[in-house]
Simulated assay, not measured.
Amino acid sequence: MSVRVLALVGSLRAGSHNRQLAHLAAQVAPEGTEVEVYEGLGELPFYNEDLDTADLLPEAAARLRRTAAEADALLLLSPEYNGTIPAVLKNAIDWLSRPFGAGAIGGKPVAVIGTAHGQYGGTWAHDEARKAVKIAGGTVLEDITLSIPGSVVRFADTHPADDAEIAAQVSDTVARLARTLAPQAA
């Protein structure tokens, strides 16, 4: 049985370094692990409980929930906007947290990584994402961290996949995430 990891990227920018890291994670995933980079977070309306009904649920929210429910684990990749988590990623977590106590993220292992321009690589945003995921019912893997500083400079002329150190760190991250599911996958 293979492990399915859903990667959610907190940046909508086409050239996002975090999106590049997500695609790198898919490339370097160990045998038996598939990483799907989710497309469509920008289509999600802001979470509104009035819309979260059987009759009104937006298709974008229903698709995100279905995709997350089919995944064995989640990998969140986040930049840092003004010292915190980007709205698009927080909004996705909000949609995945419902219905309360039975959301698509409930009980799933979740790792949070990413890169940001600042000297700490987005650690504040990563901490905020972990907090939101934990409250939403996900099982945050606190020991799996990767915060890459100086993204604008580090990746100015180099794709993360061409940076051997980063490729190795992302590969290790995905392998460790997959190993958390090894007893379930056997």
Rank of each mutant, 00 (worst) to 15 (best):
A136D: 05
L21F: 08
E36P: 00
L96F: 13
G83K: 13
S171W: 02
G107V: 09
K90Q: 14
Q20I: 06
L177C: 11
A22K: 05
E59P: 01
V112P: 06
G106T: 15
D50I: 04
P160C: 06
I166V: 15
A156Q: 01
S151L: 00
M1H: 13
W95T: 03
H23V: 14
E70H: 14
N18L: 03
L24N: 03
P86D: 13
A61T: 10
E39N: 07
A54S: 08
T115F: 05
R154E: 01
V88K: 09
A69D: 15
A29M: 12
S97P: 12
L64T: 08
E59Y: 05
L12F: 03
A125E: 09
I166G: 08
R66C: 14
R176T: 08
L24R: 02
K131C: 08
T33S: 08
G101L: 09
E34G: 03
P109Y: 09
L12Y: 01
L76A: 04
G150K: 03
G32R: 06
G114S: 09
E80A: 12
V88E: 06
T158Y: 02
L177M: 09
G83A: 12
T84D: 14
Y120N: 13
P58T: 06
T145L: 13
P30Q: 04
L57I: 11
S2H: 10
R19N: 06
L64E: 07
H23Q: 13
I135V: 15
G107T: 09
